[in-house]
C-alpha cells in the first residue's frame, strides 16, 4: 500500500504570513508528508507561519513531533509559528504531552491573523 500517505495541505500566502492547513488525520503514515511540506514553507522564512488545524480531527505523537520540530526550525529562522483551530481531541494530546504551553495556540486562524500572534 502506498496511496493515502500524502497529506493534503492547503497553503495561503498573505503579505507577511503563510497559512498552512493540513486536512485529515495525522499519524505515522502521514506525518512525513506534513514534515516535508512544513520544512519547505519554513525554508521561505515567512515572518509568521500559521498552521490551521481545524480540519485535523486526530493526531498522534508522530504528528506532535513534527510540529515540535517545526517550532524549533521556526525559532532558528526567526519566524513565529502559531497553531490555530485545534480540535478538542488534538488539543488533548498536546495537554497530555504538556506541550500546550510551549506552542502559541489560538482559537482560529482569523484570530491569529487579527492579533498578529
Amino acid at each position: 500500500m502506498t496511496s493515502g500517505n500524502e497529506m493534503q495541505i492547503d497553503v495561503d500566502r498573505r503579505d507577511d504570513l503563510v497559512v498552512a492547513s493540513p486536512v485529515g488525520e495525522i499519524d505515522l503514515a502521514r506525518s512525513p508528508s506534513l514534515r516535508s511540506r512544513l520544512g519547505e514553507l519554513l525554508g521561505e522564512k515567512p515572518p509568521r507561519l500559521i498552521i490551521d488545524l481545524s480540519k485535523v480531527p486526530y493526531m498522534d505523537s508522530s504528528g506532535v513531533a513534527t510540529l515540535v520540530e517545526a517550532l524549533q526550525v521556526s525559532r532558528s529562522k526567526n519566524s513565529t509559528l502559531v497553531l490555530a483551530g485545534m480540535q478538542d481531541r488534538v488539543r488533548s494530546v498536546f495537554e497530555i504531552a504538556r506541550l500546550d504551553t510551549v506552542f502559541t495556540i489560538v482559537a482560529d486562524t482569523a484570530t491569529a491573523i487579527r492579533d498578529g500572534s
Binding site: 485529515g24 480531527p57 486526530y58 478538542d88 488533548s92
Partner: peptide
C-alpha cells in the same frame, strides 16, 4: 464528560 478527547478517528466526530 466532554474533556480530554484525544484519539477519535476522523469519522467519529
Amino acid at each position: 464528560r466532554r474533556d480530554n478527547k484525544a484519539g477519535t478517528p476522523e469519522n467519529g466526530t
